[in-house]
C-alpha cells in the first residue's frame, strides 16, 4: 500500500454554453495542478467543458442536513418574489 493516499478533489466544470461552473464529481490527485490535468482527462472526455475549478474535498463546508428546515423553508413564504404573484391586466401586454 502506498504510504500516503492522494487527496480527494471536487471538480467543477463550466460547459460550452456559458452558465456557472457545475459540480461534476471527484477524483484523486497529489496537488491542485495535477487535479486540473486529471479533471481534463476524466471529466471532459466528451467535450463537456471550457473551464475547470478544483477544490480539495476537505475544504468544502456543507450546510447541515438537520438545518434544512430553518435554512430553506422561510423562502416558501416569500411568494411575492415570483413574477406570478402579481396580476397584470391583459391589456398591458407582455411584461
Amino acid at each position: 500500500m502506498s504510504k500516503k493516499e492522494w487527496p480527494l478533489w471536487e471538480i467543477f466544470i463550466r460547459g460550452q454554453h456559458g452558465l456557472n461552473h457545475r459540480h461534476v464529481g471527484s477524483l484523486h490527485a497529489p496537488d491542485a495542478e495535477m487535479a486540473i490535468n486529471h479533471a481534463r482527462d476524466v471529466y471532459t472526455r466528451r467535450k463537456e467543458g471550457v473551464s475547470i475549478w478544483v477544490v480539495p474535498s476537505s475544504e468544502i463546508t456543507a450546510s447541515s442536513p438537520s438545518d434544512k428546515g430553518p435554512l430553506f423553508d422561510p423562502a416558501e413564504s416569500k411568494v411575492y418574489r415570483h413574477p406570478t404573484f402579481f396580476d397584470i391586466p391583459d391589456e398591458v401586454g407582455h411584461m
Partner: peptide, 16 residues
C-alpha cells in the same frame, strides 16, 4: 504503480 504514486505525492509536498 506504488513508486509512481509516492513519487508524485513527495513532489507535491516539496513544492507546497
Amino acid at each position: 504503480g506504488e513508486w509512481f504514486r509516492d513519487g508524485l505525492s513527495a513532489y507535491a509536498e516539496k513544492s507546497a
